[in-house]
Design a protein around this nucleic acid. Structure first.
Length: 273
DNA sequence: AACAAGACCTGCATGC
DNA sequence: TGCATGCAGGTCTTGT
């Protein structure tokens, strides 16, 4: 489900409802997520106040009052929702953090590809999960020269590189396809065949598509919801993703779908070279 | 050693 | 209606 814009939307929706609240009780109904939930997870979280929520790529980091962090990833189908403790639990509610205001923060994740982990890294970047991540494309210090160097160091198809989290952190399949459409680059093009003059526009396209998606609350393709249960609306603006056979919004040619490394790519055969 | 392929899960749409 | 198939926003492991 969630790429960078969806995760950022979840972060923003949780801020006013969760920051400053103390976790008073922890219930784990299902420990088998992407990694098993730690044995001391409940004991360790109980009693800590949530002081901040940060995001790194597709991960959320909850800063806790005793110096711990709660690391969260939503996988393909996860959602973090705040709701009244009294409300009935739903299928696939795996973890519930009861807060001191009669609300609870719930991880619901049908496919169980998500991750929750508590740890005491001195800095957020010390997490092993985060250390391997490439730069966030929205990081204003990232330059097109750095992206150019990334492209030169690889022989892969450009879309595969864009969604590689060790190259760039936070870009997933939807927004990689959309950014490549805007930059008029075919997803299958080898990185070495991207001209120097195309690199800055590609980074601009990535940033624009991610920022526009955040402004619209992300894309709700099937069931994505933010922490208040609200859907996003960026899917209405998707120009190629999931639009095989439909006319290109720029030229009218029929949008094509190809499979790259097991994932669908969508592009306009006329606009994208 | 850089890639790609397959695995991990459940749910949904499609087609027979 | 029921069943089989394929596909899905992600990452991790395995193999070439």
């Amino acid at each position: 489900m969630p790429e960078l814009p969806e995760v950022e939307t979840v972060r923003r929706s949780l801020l006013p409802r969760v920051v400053g609240r103390t976790i008073v009780a922890v219930t784990v109904a299902e420990r088998r997520l992407r990694r098993p939930i730690q044995p001391d997870f409940e004991r360790r979280l109980a009693g800590q106040r949530i002081d901040a929520i940060d995001r790194r790529a597709k991960y959320l980091l909850f800063a806790l009052s005793r110096g711990d962090w709660l690391l969260a990833h939503l996988g393909m189908s996860g959602s973090l929702i705040v709701r009244a403790t009294a409300s009935p639990s739903v299928l696939h509610d795996h973890v519930r953090l009861r807060l001191d205001d009669d609300n609870e923060l719930v991880l619901n994740d049908p496919r169980r590809f998500g991750l929750l982990k508590v740890g005491a890294a001195a800095r957020a970047a010390d997490w092993p999960e985060l250390r391997v991540l490439g730069p966030d494309p929205l990081d204003s210090t990232l330059t097109s020269e750095q992206v150019g160097a990334l492209l030169r160091g690889s022989k892969r198809a450009i879309k595969n590189l864009l969604i590689d989290q060790t190259a760039l952190g936070g870009v997933g399949n939807i927004y990689a396809n959309e950014a490549l459409f805007r930059a008029r680059i075919r997803p299958t093009r080898r990185t070495g065949r991207v001209r120097k003059a195309e690199v800055a526009p590609l980074l601009d396209a990535l940033r624009a598509v991610l920022e526009e998606a955040i402004d619209l609350g992300g894309s709700s393709i099937s069931d994505y919801r933010d922490g208040d249960g609200r859907p996003g609306y960026f899917q209405l603006r998707l120009q190629v993703y999931n639009r095989e056979g439909e006319p290109c919004p720029a030229c009218g040619a029929s949008i094509r779908r190809v499979v790259q490394s097991g994932r669908s790519s969508f592009y306009c055969p006329k606009c994208q070279i």
